[in-house]
Amino acid sequence: MIDVPLTDLAALVRGADRTETTARGLRPHRLPAWVDRQLGDPQLAAMEAQPSGVRLAFSTTATAVEVVLHPTRLAYRQVERPRGAVDLVVDGVVLASVPLTGGDAVETDLATGASALLAGAPQTVAFPGLPAGEKAVEVWLPHNESVEVVALRADAPVRPAADDRPVWVHHGSSISQGSNAATPSGTWPALAARLGGVDLRNLGLGGSALVDPATARVIRDAPADLVSVALGINVVNLDGMRRRTFEAAVHGFLDTIRDGHPDTPLVLVTPIFCGIHEGTPGPGAFDVAELAAGRVRFVATGGDDLSNGRPTLRVVRDALAAVVGRRSDDPHLHLLDGLSLYGAADAEEHPLPDGLHPDPATHRLIGERFAAQVFAAGGPFARSGTARV
């Protein structure tokens, strides 16, 4: 096996903003370092270090590839949570997925809030039996655990893969990051990107789609042929704004994106259906009874007080429609109703297992519907890639 020098490894990382050199290897980050310095939010820092949509992309004739990773996962002492995975995609087709078993855990006791680091060993993920001949290989890193890439090996030389696909930058909440998806290539944005034939940069940030000006500046400065933004659920979860301030913040967010991408197709996505928050404001919280039983489920704690424009998902959808209506001078701005991706009827057939996040089958449903509405003929991203929808 041929070891790829660490100095060459960073050139293979796609879908990240940067890589950090650590004592073990390279840690991909999805946001620039200045965002953490400016906001200092531990939740945002933890989420941006989880490499949803990030992959090692290269061309090779190799038939065997190995990647050595040192993951760090967030764990709860009372609750068993599914581990992340590493996926192999060859010439656009998902060929394998390997669950993570190694690495460290930052374990939090939800009863006390105390955390402890549980150290573990690196993990070697092997992908033997690749097809013969020249091919484009992508090793998709986990969407829900941060990782340090310690080594990459192959039985033939590798080189950065040429990629002329349009770049799609998408920002959203944990739903966009991929919470409850089983694999990194199975998150709804990853599925939609494959169907749309585009190069994904996923800025889905769990708990952190809060209309932050810093995130808008990141999107403004990012290379992008297509941009979509899904806003609302985290604002409701946090009970962080009122309708007046939310609408103004969204206008400012879109203005900032337009400073860097004045004519780029831009899709504003309203929230998917979430029964706990349709008519009930946040804050959102863990269901204590479910935690006691070893399960994670979320509840809305805002009661029936809807005074002063307190946001529910219905309020947020109406506000986003109003924002787009007032920006009718922007012919490249489009509104996508999240209920067309996952609505009340879908919740009967595909209930959200924790009350907030889609399961793997529902990620696929949302990804397919997004691709059909946005990438297919007549959609705002039509003819932008090699769409297969």
Rank of each mutant, 00 (worst) to 15 (best):
G103D: 08
R153C: 12
V137G: 09
G385S: 10
V227Q: 06
D329H: 14
R81H: 08
D239I: 00
V54Q: 01
V106G: 01
T264C: 13
D329K: 08
G379H: 08
D305A: 03
V198G: 06
E368K: 04
V139K: 12
E66K: 13
D36P: 07
A192E: 07
P122Q: 11
V229G: 03
A319L: 08
H143N: 04
G102E: 04
A285G: 14
A190T: 06
L210V: 13
P71W: 06
T280P: 01
T183E: 10
P160D: 04
H261Y: 04
A190N: 06
A111H: 12
P122F: 11
R310Q: 04
P360F: 11
I366K: 01
S59Q: 11
L117N: 03
G113D: 09
G197I: 08
R364P: 00
P131Q: 11
A193C: 08
D41V: 13
A319S: 15
L118E: 13
A377S: 11
L74H: 11
P5F: 07
R37L: 14
T21V: 15
H70W: 07
Q373L: 13
L200C: 06
A371V: 00
L365H: 06
H251C: 08
G240D: 00
P82K: 05
T264F: 04
G303N: 03
P351G: 11
R37Y: 11
D304S: 10
A126I: 04
E48L: 11
T63D: 07
G309T: 05
A33D: 13
T112E: 10
E134I: 06
I366C: 01
I175W: 06
G53Y: 04
D104G: 03
D8Y: 00
F246R: 01
D221C: 05
V374F: 05
V98T: 15
G120I: 01
H170F: 08
D304W: 00
V147H: 02
D354K: 12
H251G: 03
H29A: 14
T264Q: 01
A114T: 03
A249L: 03
G40L: 13
R37W: 11
T215H: 13
S328D: 15
L339I: 09
M1T: 09
G279L: 15
L100K: 04
P5M: 05
P331M: 05
V93P: 02
P142C: 12
L191R: 15
D263L: 10
R14P: 07
A75H: 05
D255H: 09
L266H: 02
D109G: 06
D36S: 15
L191I: 15
L39M: 14
G15E: 07
V167A: 15
W188Y: 15
N308G: 10
F370K: 06
G303M: 04
V229I: 15
I2T: 11
A249H: 02
D259H: 04
D164E: 14
V147P: 03
F246W: 03
G207E: 03
V288H: 12
D212W: 12
A371E: 01
P223D: 15
F370N: 05
V374N: 02
T101V: 14
D259A: 14
P262R: 12
L74Y: 08
G204W: 07
R383T: 10
G284E: 05
P213M: 03
L341F: 12
R201H: 10
Q43K: 12
Y76G: 04
M47Y: 07
F298V: 10
L313K: 01
Y342W: 01
R81N: 06
G232T: 09
A154S: 09
D225S: 11
A347Y: 11
H261C: 05
P5T: 02
V269P: 00
E148W: 02
